[in-house]
Simulated assay, not measured.
Amino acid sequence: MSHITDEAIPMDKRIVILSVDDDPVSRVLVEKTFGQRFTVLSAENGAQAIRILENVWPDLVLLDIMLPDMAGYDVIERVHGISSEIPVLFITGLKSPEDVRKGFDAGAADYIIKPFNLVEMEARVNAHLRSSHYTRLIRDAARVETMRAMLVSLKHEINNPLAIILAHVSSAPSSERGREWVVGIERQVHRISDLLKRLGELEKIDFKRYVGSSSMLKLN
């Protein structure tokens, strides 16, 4: 999935929007609205959408419910099989309260009723792109903290047996063979100590700067 940063806005072709609709007018409107800023992929039925999803991980999906070959509910299930973090916005003429409830129950992030207002749709898409970006930032930050905790634990796991080895070396026999044995062990101890120093330096790295900016995204 692409990575959204302030510098990438208002245009970032790495951001992929998948538009799935059998109505060519709706697909053209989506392309004209977002095509200058993002990469827009279009599918006129569920089968085409699934083929695209086999090769591309979109940042957002605009999905009609009434497709000619399958229901949009089948497509959203496939999307969330790839990642539950991909926001799917249903765009449909089905407007009864029951239809809306069913759409959200299926996992839709939003429900837009046709005919839709382009300004409103663009605002909703921007909001969901921004929200999914922050969700990934939080997830990645949590992974960074887990990595840091693992490094600290690894250092302790190495330090404990290292201290025992050094204690045994200090009490080793003073014969020629014993001294050779001690030198060999000390050489390996120094290598382990060097590894510990490197782990210590790695622990100090601010990994969070590699998972993206936390500043507000300007998608307008």
Results as ranks from 00 to 15, higher is better:
residue 126 N to Y: 13
residue 17 I to D: 02
residue 28 V to Q: 14
residue 55 N to S: 13
residue 46 G to M: 03
residue 13 K to G: 07
residue 53 L to I: 08
residue 103 G to M: 01
residue 108 A to I: 01
residue 200 G to S: 04
residue 213 S to V: 10
residue 107 G to I: 02
residue 189 V to L: 01
residue 66 M to Y: 00
residue 52 I to S: 02
residue 17 I to M: 11
residue 179 R to L: 14
residue 75 V to E: 05
residue 126 N to F: 11
residue 110 D to H: 06
residue 213 S to H: 06
residue 206 D to G: 03
residue 201 E to H: 10
residue 97 P to A: 01
residue 100 V to A: 02
residue 185 I to D: 01
residue 207 F to D: 10
residue 144 V to L: 06
residue 197 K to R: 11
residue 150 M to N: 12
residue 87 P to T: 06
residue 168 H to G: 00
residue 14 R to I: 09
residue 177 R to K: 14
residue 167 A to H: 09
residue 217 L to M: 10
residue 184 G to R: 15
residue 105 D to Y: 09
residue 51 R to A: 13
residue 134 Y to W: 11
residue 188 Q to A: 07
residue 98 E to R: 03
residue 137 L to Q: 07
residue 15 I to P: 00
residue 33 T to P: 05
residue 37 R to V: 02
residue 188 Q to R: 08
residue 219 L to W: 08
residue 149 A to F: 08
residue 127 A to T: 15
residue 39 T to M: 08
residue 201 E to L: 07
residue 122 E to Y: 05
residue 158 I to N: 01
residue 85 E to F: 14
residue 122 E to K: 10
residue 8 A to Y: 01
residue 160 N to L: 12
residue 117 N to M: 00
residue 220 N to S: 11
residue 208 K to T: 02
residue 35 G to Y: 05
residue 220 N to W: 06
residue 70 M to K: 10
residue 205 I to W: 15
residue 9 I to L: 15
residue 141 A to I: 15
residue 87 P to C: 11
residue 118 L to W: 13
residue 46 G to S: 03
residue 39 T to S: 12
residue 209 R to W: 10
residue 167 A to D: 12
residue 136 R to F: 14
residue 140 D to Q: 11
residue 52 I to L: 10
residue 67 L to T: 05
residue 26 S to V: 15
residue 156 H to C: 04
residue 72 G to E: 05
residue 12 D to H: 09
residue 130 R to L: 06
residue 174 S to M: 10
residue 190 H to E: 13
residue 139 R to I: 14
residue 198 R to Y: 07
residue 215 S to M: 07
residue 166 L to D: 04
residue 132 S to W: 08
residue 25 V to H: 12
residue 218 K to I: 14
residue 172 A to H: 03
residue 96 S to C: 02
residue 146 T to M: 00
residue 171 S to A: 14
residue 152 V to W: 00
residue 165 I to T: 13
residue 88 V to E: 13
residue 195 L to H: 05
residue 104 F to M: 14
residue 25 V to Y: 13
residue 209 R to D: 08
residue 167 A to G: 06
residue 166 L to V: 06
residue 84 S to N: 15
residue 99 D to S: 09
residue 99 D to G: 02
residue 198 R to W: 08
residue 170 S to M: 12
residue 137 L to T: 07
residue 156 H to T: 09
residue 23 D to P: 03
residue 124 R to W: 02
residue 151 L to A: 07
residue 7 E to P: 07
residue 185 I to S: 06
residue 212 G to Y: 05
residue 179 R to E: 13
residue 37 R to I: 04
residue 163 A to R: 10
residue 192 I to A: 10
residue 172 A to D: 00
residue 62 L to T: 06
residue 81 G to W: 04
residue 152 V to T: 05
residue 206 D to Y: 12
residue 151 L to D: 04
residue 28 V to C: 08
residue 119 V to N: 13
residue 203 E to A: 14
residue 143 R to L: 07
residue 124 R to N: 03
residue 148 R to Q: 04
residue 68 P to C: 03
residue 24 P to C: 05
residue 60 L to M: 11
residue 179 R to H: 12
residue 67 L to A: 09
residue 78 R to A: 11
residue 35 G to C: 02
residue 39 T to L: 07
residue 61 V to A: 08
